[in-house]
């Protein structure tokens, strides 16, 4: 590379930005977490997670996040596969069909699910008209999971779709030329080659699902208390910023732990790019 192309200095403003707006805030939250509020050191804000109420919320969050991620994966993989096989010339169009719903306010969309799911809501009207039994899931864990699957499904579809489009079609053709049937080709070739996308998708769904508090507020009706709800209440209602920070650090540790597990599975060298 010639000297004229050494433009790495262009990243300097961004490096400064990362230090101030990404790294420094994390130290701030840690600072609050290990502080009693009047300046002395304590671990009680971090250990507060062992309080049965907090433990129950954390456990519920993990359950909800796991179920949401699994459902998203099961729903998204066929979508990505079908889209990939569509042979449409303008692939960007498809991607935008999945982020287009975000132009309608997120909170309004979740509220619309209240309309759909409520006891005499749209879904039950349709079920009654068809002579089927009605379902009553609004303000339960099931509704919260449904809302999260709805909200996070695009984050699972897009990375899997991207990883599928990177697969060289000739590899698939070679497999079928050599006598491999569809299922065998899928298990032996397509699935392993799309592992990167699956892992990105799992991370992009699991992390927000673990920490969300709005969906559980709106569709859980205050009855489903996730760890995100507990943290939000510490900051807005209880005004105990130190305890809220302590619980946030614990949440962050869980996110880091789940990610290092996923990184163990992932042995690719895509330079650590998620999307």
């Amino acid at each position: 590379m010639s000297n004229r192309l050494r433009t790495s200095f262009l990243a300097m403003p961004y490096a400064l930005w990362v230090l101030i707006c990404t790294i420094l805030p994390l130290f701030y939250i840690l600072g609050y977490a290990i502080n009693t509020g009047d300046g002395s050191f304590t671990l009680s804000n971090l250990l507060a997670i062992t309080d049965p109420v907090h433990l129950k919320s954390l456990w519920l969050s993990i359950q909800v996040a796991l179920i949401t991620t699994v459902i998203c994966l099961i729903l998204a993989y066929p979508v990505a596969l079908i889209l990939h096989n569509l042979k449409i010339s303008n692939k960007g169009f498809i991607v935008f069909l999945f982020i287009l719903p975000m132009w309608m306010n997120f909170m309004l969309r979740i509220l619309a699910w209240q309309n759909i799911l409520s006891n005499n809501g749209i879904l039950n009207s349709i079920l009654t008209a068809l002579g089927l039994p009605t379902i009553h899931i609004l303000y339960t864990k099931a509704a919260v999971i449904l809302g999260m699957v709805y909200d996070f499904l695009p984050y699972m579809i897009l990375p899997i779709y991207n990883s599928l489009s990177k697969i060289n079609d000739e590899v698939i053709e070679a497999a079928s030329d050599l006598g491999s049937n569809w299922l065998n080709t899928f298990i032996k070739i397509t699935l392993p080659l799309s592992k990167d996308g699956i892992i990105s998708g799992i991370i992009m769904v699991f992390v927000p699902a673990l920490s969300s508090f709005v969906v559980s507020n709106l569709l859980g009706g205050g009855k489903v208390l996730l760890i995100g709800n507990v943290i939000e209440q510490e900051f807005t209602l209880a005004r105990n910023w130190n305890l809220g920070s302590g619980l946030s650090i614990i949440l962050m540790l869980f996110v880091l732990a789940s990610m290092s597990i996923m990184n163990k599975v992932d042995d690719s060298e895509n330079g650590g790019m998620l999307i």
Binding site: I29, S211, G228
Partner: peptide
């Protein structure tokens, strides 16, 4: 991208 939104929001 990876951090929970709530943690990013609070830390900022």
């Amino acid at each position: 991208l990876l951090n929970a939104d709530i943690v990013t929001g609070i830390s900022l």
